[in-house]
Design a protein around this nucleic acid. Sequence first.
RNA 1: GCGUCCGUAGCUCAACGGAUAGAGCGUUGGACUUCGAAUCCACAGGUUGGAGGUUCGAAUCCUCUCGGACGCGCCA
Length: 554
Amino acid sequence: MNLTIKQQIETKVRDAIKQAMIEGIFPEDLLIPEVQVESPKNPEFGDFATNISFPLTKILKKSPHDIAGILIKYLEKEKMIKKVEVAGAGFINFWIASERLHEILKEIEINGERYGSSNIGQRKKTIVEFLSANPTGPLHVGHGRGAAIGDIIGNILGFCGYDVTREYYINDVGNQMVKLGASLQSRYLDLLGESLPLPEEGYQGEYMIDIAKKLYELEGDSCRDKDVLYFKNFAMSEILEDIRQSLLSFGVHFNSWFAESTLYQEEMIKKVLDKLENMGYTYEANGALWLKTTAFGDDKDRVLIRENQIPTYFTGDIAYHCSKYVRGYELLIDLWGADHHGYINRLKAACLALNYPKESLVILLYQLVSLSRGNQPVSMSTRQGEFVTLTEVIQEVGKDAARFFFCMRKSDAHLDFDLELARSQSQENPVYYVQYAHARICSILRKAREAGLEIKSYEKIDVSVLNLSEELMLLSKMSTLQDEVLGCARTFEPHRLTIYLMEMVSIFHNYYNHHRIISSESDITDARLLLVNGLRIVLKNTLSLLGISAPEEM
RNA sequence: GCGUCCGUAGCUCAACGGAUAGAGCGUUGGACUUCGAAUCCACAGGUUGGAGGUUCGAAUCCUCUCGGACGCGCCA
């Protein structure tokens, strides 16, 4: 794709500085700072603005106002810039020529559903691991946040040209799973009229009884003498199937499900341990084997093999991340709940010890969701079986509203999910504001078609009649889709897209309420139909990145 | 005790170190005989928890402090 308007301005500002250097106005050895161009909040400050004069002040020993004054001499010669002026203490504000804004419609026409995409990822093999909830119970509301954010980050990176795989890591090894098996065994024997108490800290939820019933329906009483392992496997596969179904209704699709147990089957654990040992980063103490993570920024060393000779969870996790590298991934993105933050340094340390490049492992956190009903906190414990499932929430408020709600907020902010509020606000969820605009445009296009008006191609239309300030603002907003997506990819902040959508749609609703798209003036009608159709595509592309539907009517 | 994150309008939240801190909900008053009123327009609402500091400029960065959440296992 060609450069966006914003990127063109950045280039032109840099060129202006270089030109001033060539002409001896600026010193020839000047180190040009990064040029930042933004869309100002206040429309009086133009379509775009840059603060470049400020970082240059110190280097050039001139006032920002004077520097800006020098630069605009070069910039005002540019054809795509209608007006450029110095404002405030030294900001440079740009008004884009309408001809350039109109071209956005041509770019949308050419690129269609790819409009906004890019190739900075250069097909880099990337694995996004998220959710990875233990298969000990159904997904609850809190999991929804991780699922939504992880899925959307995957979409965004894919749109930016990364080769993305989404993976779910299944913790099918360890004590919790044994307890799960024992819990099912107890519930199953209950059905046979035999009593085996639930294990200490066993899983008490209703769903375990349902699974026991299912096992009884399938196998009768023939499992009376099966061991805990048998029950564990049955419980786990049932629960994983339930998780898969929940995710399906939430619009989340994993390409890969990776079981912890395969690390043992394929001796990955042993290989990693050997490697760390050979590199001299391990030692024995108190009967256990330790990894010197402190040599790589951790605050204490960590146990790899316990005194009882069983590897720790950590060892498995090192082997797991190692397997990602072995499978050819160059960029590893992990999305964890913030309760795991204390674990970051040790995992990063282990990957450094194994000589993997530091930047190749990115660990993102999202803050936990607390649940309340009215003002009363609701606890969420899988073990005690007290929780509201993700499926229930989706049934109540819908997939689109739930996803939008989860990704509207910065992921490092705490989120309180009030069930009553969620229900009452489901009708007021901003997602409808955005979807309504899309449906409204589709309705206009239907009306036009009924009147025998088709959307003509860009070349056949006189787009110069699009000269209302709302139309130009809309085009200016539409022009930054790629910039917004790239910003999200750089910062891993998907919530920016929701803000972008709301700002853009607000301009549209305002425009719609004050001007008619279809009118008796056919040249204006043609151009406006092309404009709203372009907006429809921008909305659809953005919603699709968020995994939210773009309804044609609602 | 140590560490991570958060504190912004009555409520839920935005704001790449930038210009007069913005939206929605709620309150008040207006706009449908014309493309969808799930919309639009107007009004009101703030010492960005508090105190210092860094600089051309701080809600944002640093130090201290108050309040909240979460971590600190040879658990997973």
